[in-house]
Design a protein around this nucleic acid. Structure first.
Length: 805
DNA sequence: GCGAGCAGCGTACCT
DNA sequence: ACAGGTACGCTGCTCGCG
């Protein structure tokens, strides 16, 4: 039968160890199958291998009050870090036995791959691709007899037909933050494929047809359990439901002495696990998908940038619609009040489930694609980090190559790596000013292309086979030219596949499912390619190599600097460059000359390295640093032939500047780049200046947004945002840890910190501060590049025009 | 006791 | 949270001066 592999759980049948596979047929049928599978790890013995095999069979360990031992061993050969090595594959009776037995086996040698989770182990060894369609042969007991992957055209073309249900809870919160031991859940809203609603025990549905009334909180939870079963949801989804909704519902259920078994199977339990700092909730037999994690992942990787990671902000960014909002601190009041307020609360709750559905639907194609590429199940991949993705991909490749996976570093190794920074990119200091005809070149996927083109890999480093033939990096490190390393090989496949998917994309119909999936697939590959360098120098990496990291960045610096030198030889003036880019002034030369230059550079570049001409900009502006004459790096604005402005680094792109400063800076920039009308820009600033001084500016436009990234108690110095938060807390306003803080500089107080108040508590604003510390610095940043000073603006209107341009 | 100068903290951004 | 490079506001210290 053909089916999508959705999830893998540890299982056992009649004492036989194995995994339960959750399969979904293209027709929508759910099947739980059993596949026998033995847990194991590798041991490279210190001494004689046969003797070690005998000794290991006698090892005993205590696990959960039970004496356990090794099931059997196999003598095998694997490549360990570049060398063929004889070792033992040590099998255990149960997955849970691995840690204790591995501990006992330390005496006989070095163990490997003992921390790879059993279900992950199964996915790697089976070759199955989570989220993809495959062929399974089952017997009458639903035991998997065999399986076969299908060709990509078939395996990846469609989404698994998942039945989904999103949900959201509202809780009573008279004390500010809801406490699950005291504060009841008021309502549960949901959005399923074929219906939506709110379950509650309010006194009245206040005319809302979608509200289903039950007797009490306990009955409400029971009704929700019944609902999930009735809808046969394969995937249930909340927003931050790992940390909030599910743990809260579980605690309430246990308090109310009822079961909260929303899963499938005999028990159908929900289990909470702490992984690092985060909690995660697993639902037996279903996929619990927390839409928050993918949103935060997409924001981090730049797939989609969100202004904030709240459900509302994410939904609004993705849909363009506004979501119904409510005062969260007043939820309990609305509940107690009933009537209109309660009716609004019902609407709000349902809107959250609907919004969550939209967000989930947006996220699923990328998550499915990421799971297929990295061979992680949807549960895992939706909670993953770029580092884990690269690791997962490399572990599977290691298996294919018959290589041992290096162990994770211990704590002190991680610390040592963190303390030992690697020199990074080169950034050229620009000359401040306004320029015309700027050609911007950049290297396509610079770090990935350096890695593949020079075979940079922890185990091709200083190989024993190449001698003087080896490639020598500027750092002196040598890299094998005969055998491809695991990292370059993996990366090359990622880049090649992405190239072919992008070609395929051009032929597909935009908006079709296949287009969406193919696009998601190539994005997943892009994220992987961009994360590979980072993974090589990531302190907790299994494939960490300082030498590789240094070689990559040294080569990057060399290539970009060589390109700049070549550009000067070709008669261009080099204006600026950052990491992989090179900004040239065309001067009297034309686009053809720029193309010819690119062509010349590319002729010399090795492998898949390539310089691209990003665009030619008719006009651009670079500014000086606040201190000194030199140009500021990472701050510029360019306008292309179509009139689109590209802005980097300026205050106007930073959320920790007030809207008034940001908007005015943006307008000044636009006037100068589009019209070149300096007097108009100055007049604009004068207008804003007057409004500010007149006290007319709405406080909303003056708020400065910043995050308290550390916990509130651990700061060494007082900052305005911290001071504002402290004052707000003293006034009884609750502020969550790591919250985004919006504050105003008011008239009350001496220092800036003393003057700072949360937006919601501020009554007035300090006009002098906003003029001198916000508006003027922001606009002078731009106008200063044209020789304008502050007094020029503060005094009367100027008639001088920008005849030069 | 006070203001100027400056180092360092902390945040957000760029590639 | 994959990395390092960078700008810059603000605080809080040191130092020189009176």
């Amino acid at each position: 039968m053909k089916a999508f592999l959705l999830e893998v759980e540890p299982s056992a049948r009649r004492g036989q160890s194995g995994v339960r596979l959750f399969l979904k047929t293209p027709g929508g049928k759910s099947v739980a199958a059993f596949a026998p599978f033995e847990p194991y790890f590798y041991l490279v013995p210190n001494g004689d291998i046969s003797q070690a095999a005998v000794q290991i069979m006698a090892v005993k360990a205590l696990s959960r009050n039970e004496m356990i031992g090794v099931k059997r061993t196999e003598e095998i050969e694997r490549n360990a870090f570049g060398n063929a090595t004889k070792m033992l594959k040590v099998f255990t009776h149960a997955p849970g036995h691995v840690p204790a037995l591995r501990e006992e086996c330390k005496a006989f040698g070095q163990s490997y791959e003992h921390t790879i989770l059993f279900t992950r182990r199964f996915v790697i060894d089976s070759g199955l691709v989570p989220g993809a369609l495959a062929e399974f042969e089952l017997d009458e007991h639903k035991t998997v007899k065999s399986w076969k992957n299908l060709p990509p055209e078939e395996a990846f073309a469609t989404m698994p037909p998942l039945r989904t249900l999103t949900f959201d809870i509202e809780t009573h919160n008279p004390g500010g933050i809801s406490r699950p031991e005291k504060d009841p859940i008021l309502m549960v809203s949901y959005s399923a494929d074929d219906g939506e609603g709110v379950i509650t025990y309010a006194k009245s549905a206040v005319g809302k047809k979608f509200v289903k009334l039950v007797k009490g909180e306990k009955e409400m939870l029971e009704a929700f359990v019944a609902l999930v079963k009735e809808k046969k949801a394969d995937l249930i989804c909340g927003y931050n439901s790992d940390e909030f909704d599910l743990p809260y519902m579980m605690e309430r259920a246990s308090k109310l002495r009822t079961d909260f078994n929303i899963g499938r199977g005999k028990k159908g339990r929900v289990t909470l696990k702490k992984l690092g700092l985060r909690r995660r909730a697993r639902v037996a037999g279903r996929i619990h998908f927390d839409a928050f994690s993918p949103a935060s992942f997409m924001d981090f990787t730049g797939t989609v940038k969100f202004p904030r990671l709240t459900l509302g902000a994410v939904y609004e960014t993705l849909s363009g619609d506004k979501k119904i909002d409510t005062d969260k601190t007043a939820i309990w009041k609305a509940w107690d009040a009933g009537g209109e307020a309660l009716a609004h609360l019902f609407d709000y709750s349902l809107a959250d489930s609907r919004a969550c559905r939209k967000v989930m639907e947006f996220e699923l194609p990328l998550e499915i694609a990421m799971g297929r590429v990295t061979r992680m199940t949807l549960f895992d991949v939706s909670r993953t980090t770029p580092g884990q993705m690269v690791e997962s991909l490399l572990m599977r490749r290691a298996f294919e190559r018959g290589e041992i996976v290096p162990n994770k570093p211990d704590y002190s190794t991680v610390q040592a790596r963190l303390d030992d920074q690697i020199q990074g990119a080169y950034v050229k200091v620009p000359m401040p000013g306004v320029y015309e005809n700027i050609a911007v070149f950049d290297f396509r996927s610079l770090y990935p292309s350096i890695i593949t083109s020079h075979n940079i890999d922890p185990f091709t480093l200083n190989c024993s086979c190449c001698g003087d033939d080896a490639f020598v990096a500027p750092t002196g490190s040598k890299f094998c030219v005969k055998k491809k390393g695991i990292v370059p090989e993996t990366l090359e496949k990622v880049l090649d596949e992405r190239t072919s998917l992008k070609a395929k994309l051009k032929k597909l119909e935009k908006g079709s499912t296949e287009y969406k999936l193919t696009d998601a697939h190539q994005w997943a590959l892009k994220i992987l390619a961009n994360s590979t360098y980072g993974y090589l120098v990531y302190s907790r990496s299994r494939y960490y190599s300082r030498e590789c990291g240094e070689a990559i960045t040294a080569l990057a610096r060399k290539y970009i600097q060589d390109t700049m030198a070549d550009a000067e030889k070709a008669g261009f003036e080099v204006l600026y460059g950052d990491t992989d880019s090179c900004f040239l002034l065309l001067g009297s030369q034309k686009r053809e000359d720029a193309e010819a230059f690119r062509h010349e550079v590319n002729k010399k570049l090795p492998g898949r390295m390539e310089l691209e001409l990003e665009d030619i900009y008719p006009r651009g502006i670079f500014v000086s640093k606040k201190q000194g004459e030199k140009g500021a790096k990472k701050k510029y604005a360019l306008i292309n032939a179509a009139g689109a402005i590209k802005i980097r680094g300026f205050e106007l792109v930073r959320r920790d500047w007030s809207l008034v400063a940001r908007n005015t800076q943006r307008k000044v920039l636009e006037i100068l780049l589009k019209e070149g009308d300096l007097p108009k820009a100055k007049d604009l600033v004068r207008g804003v200046l007057e409004d500010l001084r007149g006290g007319k500016m709405p406080l909303k436009d003056l708020a400065i947004t910043t995050q308290l990234r550390k916990s509130a108690g651990s700061y060494d110095i007082m900052s305005p945002e911290l001071s504002a938060v402290q004052k707000a807390k003293a006034a009884g306003v609750r502020v969550e840890e790591h919250a985004l803080i919006e504050y105003i500089i008011t008239k009350q107080g001496k220092t800036i910190s003393e003057k700072a108040q949360l937006l919601e508590l501020a009554k007035d604003y300090d006009a002098d501060y906003y003029v001198n510390n916000q508006l003027m610095p922001a606009v002078l940043k731009i106008l200063g590049a044209l020789g304008v000073d502050g007094e020029d603006i503060k005094t009367k209107s100027s008639q001088k025009s920008l005849g030069d341009w």
